[in-house]
Design a protein around this nucleic acid. Structure first.
Lengths: 165, 165
DNA sequence: CGTGAAACATTAGCGGC
DNA sequence: GCCGCTAATGTTTCACG
């Protein structure tokens, strides 16, 4: 969980693989001025330490028909401890988190500071689908008290590449 | 830009590569019950059509010392058209977008509906770094009128895999 | 860390359904 | 059109210096 020590070559490897995860080890080795085997050893080490969480293909939402991107702020009911006949199996938080895991249109969900409890990133086809998701899924969830939605008008920047400190 | 026609095998390939972009073509071919060459031809076609935008390595923010994740809502000054001595080179929107591209701690930025104009996702080491980013960079930007920040307390879900409709 | 060799993967051409 | 075979080329990976 704690931060890992990285030297300059490690950081260079990470920044290369953040930009293109499909480069061959040989290509990466060339760019960091190493021969293939030590470069591969570093990459495997970074994978095992969990610095590299994995490799993925990124898709274009428009091209697969997901034309609408929304952020939804969600507030949950406060766990009412005044009259619990018996202890519920799940807190509202646990119940909500478990549901979010099964909603594919929700690609990200964070518990947040501030007025609202959760921030969700939601990809859907269009406003009709968003409306259905809200009415039939999110607002029907027993733990959900209140929601506020905003919609993306324009993407200025969106990268999976983290700054290397 | 428009959505692309995908058959069941294309969707299966995409869902496999969204989960693991490092699988060999042979492995993918096996899982979709195709021999390697037609599978590779499909993957190359999906890449060329832009359905697959690219392949990347995902890093663990904690492991590289990025312990704080913030969302920042930004409101820009309204372009004052009442007394322009001469036309400025950039609108406040263009000016802000150009700056965001150069701030590595801002990994995502969307123009949004609602009260605030932009939503930024910001990865930094800790609150001291966040404070410096705000004071010395974001709030000093001439186009920025007003900001509101929230901080991630807990990650419930965060995936790059989009739902395949 | 680098070298070399075996094992493995990618990819283009061609024939068949 | 889309599939699958084959064969040449390129890549990964490991033992060893």
């Amino acid at each position: 969980m704690a931060a890992v020590n990285l030297d300059a070559i490690d950081r260079k490897i990470l920044s290369i693989l953040q930009a293109d995860g499909h480069l061959s080890n040989q290509e990466v080795a060339e760019r960091v001025n190493l021969s293939p085997s030590p470069c591969l050893r570093r990459i495997r080490r970074l994978e095992q330490e969990g610095v590299i969480r994995g490799y993925v293909a990124l898709l274009d939402p428009q091209k697969i028909g997901l034309g609408l991107l929304a952020w939804v702020n969600v507030r949950l009911e406060k766990h009412d401890a005044s009259s619990p006949a018996r202890k519920p199996r799940l807190t509202p938080q646990e119940d909500f988190a478990a549901s979010v895991a099964n909603w594919p249109e929700v690609v990200a969900c964070y518990a947040m500071t501030g007025e609202m409890d959760y921030l969700l990133r939601v990809h859907v086809e269009d406003m009709a689908h968003f409306s259905r998701f809200m009415m039939e899924t999110l607002l029907r969830h027993p733990a959900v008290l209140d929601v506020k939605s905003s919609f993306a008008l324009q993407k200025i920047k969106d990268t999976t590449a983290l700054p290397l400190v």
